[in-house]
Every structure is written in structure tokens, then in C-alpha cells.
Design a protein around this nucleic acid. Sequence first.
DNA 1: TGGGGTTAT
DNA 2: ATAACCC
Length: 464
Amino acid sequence: MERAEAWAAGSSPGALEPEEPGGLPWFHDQVVPAGSSSSRVIVHVDLDCFYAQVEMISHPELKGKPLGVQQKYLVVTCNYEARELGVKKLMNVRDAKEKCPQLVLVNGEDLTRYREMSYKVTELLEEFSPVVERLGFDENFVDLTEMVEKRLEQLQSDEPSALTVSGHVYGNQPINLHDILHIRLLIGSQIAAEMREAMYNQLGLTGCAGVASNKLLAKLVSGIFKPNQQTLLLPESSQDLIHSLNHIKEMPGIGYKTTKRLEALGISSVRDLQTFSSKILEKELGISVAQRIQKLSFGEDNSPVTPSGPPQSFSEEDSFKKCSSEVEAKNKIEELLASLLNRVCQDGRKPHTIRLIIRRYSSEKHYSRESRQCAIPSHIIQKLGIGNYDVMTPMVDVLMKLFRNMVNVKMPFHLTLLSVCFCNLKALNTAKKGTIDYYLTPSLSTTSRSGKHSFKMKDIHMED
DNA sequence: TGGGGTTAT
DNA sequence: ATAACCC
């Protein structure tokens, strides 16, 4: 029911314009040159208050109530009922309860269900086109260029509603059915609507979508109508869109540090950045950052949609007020490691590097972490797939060595965060029968089938 | 500010 | 190993 608003009337429903004598639409010969990198069709899909949605699916009795998802003393996100009552993202729990005493809070420190749902969304989008890039757990970019081309070729001139935009058009700009770029983006808006419909029907999730010619613009325009709506940006409106930003800080790609450095140069608006001397900007920020962000200020972004594929790393972290003893640290590290081992086991690939990250207490200083990493000993890697507690003890030993390398445990210390990360993930079974690798791979060679205590050839050759 | 992620240097 | 960026 709340779904109905998704299909809010779009502007400019188009009718098909005059045909060529041959019966083909006029644009059938207006193909974009093969290999042309310009004129892409990109969609940015952004789930509505994702963690809160997942919680409402898990606990249907919470639907309709103001709901916040809590991590430590923060309400990290909340549903729209809570937002209407004044709760904001990343609000202190006290402030939130004060603003909204009826607020229901659920703990969201365990990301497992969010992560699983997040990948279901990405996989659903990959069914439309394999080129899907994740951004966090709740956003995805999809490059629709090829799919749009195919639909254009299939397009029959006698379909009455074939050229009707789906959702909003930014600035209510009229669509020009004689402009091939408009037509392509319009088809993109139809695909975006299909994606959102599939997300709702198959996963029960609502979200926004933005369709534009690059990632920057697609992302910016996806947030124009919220929640659960979509917006198309036509090229003629892109300057209006970027100038609707009140500050360069709102430009994706310009973060906290760069904003501070730009402000020091007297740059605060998008137009300031557009008109600032390129030479001076390059000298201040380095040529790479300077050129990239100045292009962003014009709405230009040639970065490709890079398929994310499986994750490059797995990590678990825990923050706390104070950890000041080695025993305490070891207990927390064991907890983090136990969860990570389960995840790595499910993934199937094997990490070859392990990292320990800490945050030291500091009264005023802004957020600095330290880390130590090392290769995971090969005899441990082998045991990763099947047995779980076999690897706990040696892994904890490795992590505590990293810990003592960072923290002098003979001196007082005060930590506020511990994190363990597995990275450098490798697919385990690339070994082919008949090769040396095959006989050195425990899961394939005959010795491995007699159990985890069996003798393994690799142990001889690979002993550390 | 949580509990995650990525890429570049 | 850190620093920057994203959510």
C-alpha cells in the first residue's frame, strides 16, 4: 500500500513521434559509436533507511511504530515514522528518547542480517546487468548502457507507451523525443522502475533510484525525491542539480579533509570550485585530487561502474569506553575472531593476510587508528575450510603478537576500539588435476579425505 | 559517531 | 601502514 506512492506521476508522458517510411523509429540509425565512453546510462539505487527496513521485516509487529536502530549509544538510522517525530541519523540515544519517548530501539551492532540482505539486493540487480558496484550496504550503481541499447533495438514503433518516463524528471524538464540522449535515459528510468519493483516483490524492500549519464549525477539525483521514488536527470539540467548543493562538502568524493583544505583556500560553493585556478588547486591538493574534484564540480565524472564482486575483506570490530589490560584485549579479540571464522568459512575463499586494528584513547585528537598485519601461516590457512576451533588458538597467538607489536603491555594503555580483518582472499581450488598444485592442495589430494588429522604433503614443504 | 567497506600512496 | 573516501 505504501508502495503506491512509488509510482507518483512522472512528468511529460511521451507519445511516439512520426515514423520513418520504413516503419522504424527515427532513432534506429542514431546509434552511439561503439566504444564511445560518453553517453552512458547509469542508475544509482539507494535503499530507504536500510537497517530499519530489515528490522521491520524481521519483526513485523514493529511496522508503523517509530523505530530506531541502535549501535552503542547512537541511533544510527531510523524509519520514517521516527524521522517525522524528530529523530535523525546518528543521533545520541538520549536526545532521540527525549525528542521521541515512544521510540522503539533495536540493537543493530551485529550486521549479519543487514549484510546478507545487502548482498541479496546486489545479486538481484546483477540479474539486470552484471555491472553492479556496491557503495556501503545500502547503495548500488548499475551501468545500464548496454541494456538500454538492446531495448532500443527491440523497440517497436507501434507500442503506445513505449516511450513514457517512469518516475520524476529533475526540474520537470520536458523530454524531447527527438533527442536520442533523452530517449536512452528514459529507457533507463523504465529499467530503474523494474529494479525497484523486483526489490519490493522479491525482497520486500523499498528504495530510491536516480538515473543519469554518470555516477556522480545519478547519485545526486537519486536523493531528490525520497523515500521510495525515483528521479531522472536530463543533461540540460545537470548544472541546476550541482548548483543546488549548498556546499562543496555535499559533493560525493569531497570528504572531510578536502573540504577543510578547500575552505582554507576560500572555496565553499560549487561555483567557487568551478572558477578557482586549476594551477593553484593542483599545487595545493596534488594534480590527481585537484583535477578529479574540479571535474566533479562541473558534474563531470568519467569513473566507470566497477563490478564489486565478492568482498575484498572481512572485518569485525567493537568499540568500548576502555580496554586497558592484555587479558581484556585477548578476550575481545577472541570474540571478533570467532565471528570472522564463521564468515570466512561460509565464503569459501581463504584469507592470506590478517590485520589487527586499534584505536587509542585521546582526549581531543580526531580519530586515528593503528594497525599491524602479517601473512597467515600456511598451515593455518589449510585448516580454515572445515575445522573452526583448530585454528582459534594459533590465530589468537598470531593476533596477540600483532597486539604486543603495537601496544607496549608493560606500560599503561587505554584502547577504545579493537578490530580484526581478514584480507588478501584467494579462491582455494584453482589447482588442476595432474599439476603439482593439485597434489599440494589438501582438499583435492587423497590424503585429505581421511580427515583433518591426516598427514598432508603440503605440511612437509610449506612448514614455516 | 558505529560497524562496516574501498582505493591510493 | 596510513590516509583518504563512501555508507
